[in-house]
Simulated scan of single mutants.
Amino acid sequence: MTAVAQAATGLIVHGQTAQGLTGCPACGVAAVGHRRRRVRLHDIPCCGGPVRLVRAKRLWQCRVGLCPTTVVSEQHSLAGKRAILTNRAIRWATDAVEKCDASVSALSHQLGVSWRVLLKGIETEGRRRVGRL
């Protein structure tokens, strides 16, 4: 975490992963840090309002000329590719629907997202949970 700010729409938390070393998934050679891209995610509510995470996601560049991979995006367990919600927010909302009979509309309001976005996450998490049985 690098900074926290209070906005009219809730808390905004800025963060980034530590500098590290990663290999190219295609050729295995150590990749070079290319730049960072900001990713905005909605997380579970805190202090009575929505929380938005702004994460500086690392991009890596493979410098091997014959490698088919040029730029690799950092992956994190916080959220999947192209996600709008954190995995934690999806689990929180799914638990609320399952155990508390909360409505998707009310939960989406608490998270600061549309009910369609939340419903998609809940459906995916529900299928994952049913598959575990």
Rank of each mutant, 00 (worst) to 15 (best):
V72K: 08
V72W: 05
V72Y: 00
V72P: 01
V72L: 10
S73Y: 09
E74P: 06
E74K: 08
Q75K: 14
Q75T: 15
Q75H: 14
S77Y: 09
S77I: 10
S77N: 12
S77W: 06
S77G: 14
L78Y: 04
A79T: 08
A79W: 00
G80N: 10
K81Q: 15
R82W: 13
R82F: 13
A83V: 05
A83C: 10
I84T: 12
I84Q: 09
I84L: 13
L85C: 05
L85M: 12
L85E: 00
L85K: 06
L85I: 11
L85T: 05
L85W: 12
T86W: 04
T86Q: 03
T86M: 00
N87H: 08
N87K: 05
N87V: 07
R88Y: 02
R88S: 06
A89E: 01
A89F: 05
A89L: 04
I90H: 03
I90R: 07
I90E: 05
I90K: 02
I90T: 14
R91G: 06
R91E: 11
R91M: 07
R91P: 13
R91C: 11
W92Y: 01
W92G: 05
W92V: 06
A93I: 04
T94R: 02
T94D: 07
T94H: 07
D95A: 00
D95I: 02
D95N: 11
D95V: 02
D95P: 01
V97A: 10
V97N: 03
V97Y: 03
E98Q: 14
E98P: 05
C100Y: 14
C100Q: 15
D101A: 07
A102G: 03
A102F: 00
A102V: 06
A102R: 03
S103H: 10
S103Y: 13
S103L: 05
S103N: 06
S103T: 15
V104N: 06
